[in-house]
Design a binder for these strands. Structure first.
Length: 482
RNA sequence: GCCAAGGUGGCAGAGUCCGGCCGAACGCAGCGGCCUGCAGAGCCGCCUACCGCCGGUUCAAAUCCGGCCCUUGGCUCCA
């Protein structure tokens, strides 16, 4: 089975064939950095990350570009607020660094470039000029608008007809536009005093002082870094219209080339029956989620629903993700430890385990090739966990080769493709920590030997409180650090 | 009103494109058993779904067709 994706542009599932058979040009519409990122944003990031990783696994050289919108009225609105900063740029820089920190915590692969609007104004002006010269845009009172009636395919992404659309943009713009659906490419600073209040940046342009419009940035930045035609353009479902629709209009009008071959849209994260968003004030920041549930459980949560289906956030769904993550991690852990044990140095064969490994690899690949179905991919891994546990519980002697392959699968598919940092990847003073815990467990063992169960249980509880989970087994106490 | 996507067990969530292997996966919660000093983890078993409603096509439908009801997203900044 080869990779198939659901393309919003055609509304159909299609075989994935990038322009160059060896590489993929991937652009992701990043966020406006006016606040901390929430779980909804993280959902998109993590899915884009899984796509990136799977494409690499398939052998593609992935060129991944992800923008930061650092010129925006929402940012300007926060100028002077508390200690955020005294200018649009300062606030944007602040939230960009906070956002990158959040991204790191979720173990996202880095993009090749993170372009910013403020650094691409010359390219934006060039693009607007081209559109004006080609007759797709017109200047009006110092602002420049895209004329939707000139681009005959306008509406092809969102399947809407121009006549049925409501007016775009702010009230103040209406009188300047020829058609209500026209949208701003460049906004005059003077014509809209509210748009460039203290702290908001403006640039000089052929049309006078002003700021880039809302949609032009992505067209300019993606073209600058990846060329006229992208292979994959990903973004949140809420961006289909008008943002992505407008990007297509601008780019295709300017270059006469198809802007993006495949449009993939991540459906929204919902909570309490509605989407999570800052305006509804029902959001949970990435930061809070990570500190409360741990980065891996958050990642597990976000990947536990395929990207093209909406997902429900609640305390319960995240709790479940914690369990799913731990089950995977423990399974991996057990397999690794078994490999090191003497019981593993045998030549026995367990057909069940071997079959399970093979099935997992097949099912995992089928799932990812099936429009990046991460939910099913995880299921395949969890089924391997069951097979490993059964093998270890039921067998006197272990099937070394099969265990080796199981561990390899966990690492290759779970770590590299799904981006889970499995146990054993600990950082810091792991060895010292291990030795200290062993020491406490030795003491506890002595207490148990002497029949002082109460004291032994206290020690176990105290370790638990510190995040060290203790399990008594036939071969002594084992532990894992949360 | 227009565009788009959905309605599957207590929860969550696959399967629907390419109809039969689905009386329905994986997991969480719950129940019973094994193991254990106990607990946890793990294993085994159970539990609860005829897949929104109605009708049609077919040897066969959760999966195809038609109608209806409901939900969500977009049509304003938004991942």
């Amino acid at each position: 089975m080869t990779l198939e994706v659901t393309n919003t542009l055609t509304g159909e599932r299609e075989p994935f064939e990038p322009q160059d058979p060896d590489s993929v040009l991937l652009y992701y519409c990043g966020l406006t950095v006016s606040d901390f990122a929430h779980l909804g944003h993280a959902r998109s990031w993590v899915h884009v990350d899984a796509m990136h990783r799977w494409l690499e696994h398939l052998g593609y050289d992935v060129r991944h570009v992800e923008n930061f919108t650092d010129v925006n009225e929402k940012i300007v609105a926060r100028v002077g607020e508390d200690e955020l900063g005294d200018s649009e740029g300062e606030i944007a820089r602040h939230f960009i660094s906070e956002t990158i920190e959040d991204m790191r915590s979720l173990n996202l692969l880095r993009a090749e470039v993170y372009p910013r609007v403020s650094e691409h104004v010359p390219e934006i002006i060039d693009l607007v000029e081209t559109l004006t010269e080609k007759g797709y845009a017109y200047e009006s009172n110092g602002s420049v608008y895209f004329d939707v009636t000139e681009f005959e395919e306008y509406g092809k992404l969102s399947n809407q007809k121009i006549e049925e659309m409501e007016a775009q943009g702010e009230e103040s713009e209406r009188s300047e536009k020829r058609h209500p659906a026209d949208f701003a490419l460049w906004k005059s600073g003077e014509a809209h005093p509210d748009d460039a209040p203290a702290g908001g940046q403006t640039w000089d342009s052929p049309w006078g002082e002003g700021r880039p419009g809302w949609h032009i940035e992505c067209s300019a930045m993606s073209t600058t870094h990846l060329g006229d035609t992208l292979d994959v353009h990903v973004g949140g479902q809420d961006l289909v219209f008008p943002h992505h629709e407008n990007e297509i209009a601008q780019s295709e009008a300017a270059t006469d080339q198809q802007f993006a071959k495949y449009w993939l849209h991540v459906r929204l994260l919902e909570t309490g029956g509605e989407k999570m968003s800052s305006s509804l004030q029902n959001y949970f920041t990435v930061r809070n989620a990570v500190s409360e549930f741990g980065p891996k459980a958050v990642r597990m949560f976000l990947l536990s629903t395929a990207y093209n289906n909406r997902q429900t956030y609640s305390e319960a769904t995240l709790d479940e993700a914690v369990e799913r993550w731990e089950r995977l991690d423990r399974g991996y852990d057990r397999a690794v430890e078994a490999l090191d044990s003497t019981d593993a140095r045998t030549k026995v064969e367990d057909a069940d385990l071997r079959g399970a490994v093979e099935r997992t690899r097949e099912e995992f690949a089928d799932a990812m090739n099936d429009d990046f179905n991460t939910r099913e991919a995880i299921t395949a891994l969890l089924e391997l966990v069951s097979a490993v546990n059964r093998h270890l519980d039921e067998r006197e002697e272990f099937d070394y080769r099969a265990l080796r392959e199981a561990v390899d699968s966990f690492e290759e598919l779970g770590e590299r493709v799904l981006g889970f940092a499995l146990a054993g990847d600990g950082e810091g003073d792991v060895e010292l920590l291990d030795e200290l815990v062993e020491l406490v467990l030795d003491v506890r063992e002595q207490e148990r030997g002497a029949g002082n169960y109460e004291r032994a249980d206290d020690l176990r509880d105290e370790l638990e409180a510190l995040g060290v989970e203790v399990q008594d087994t036939d071969s002594g106490a084992e532990f894992r650090v949360e």
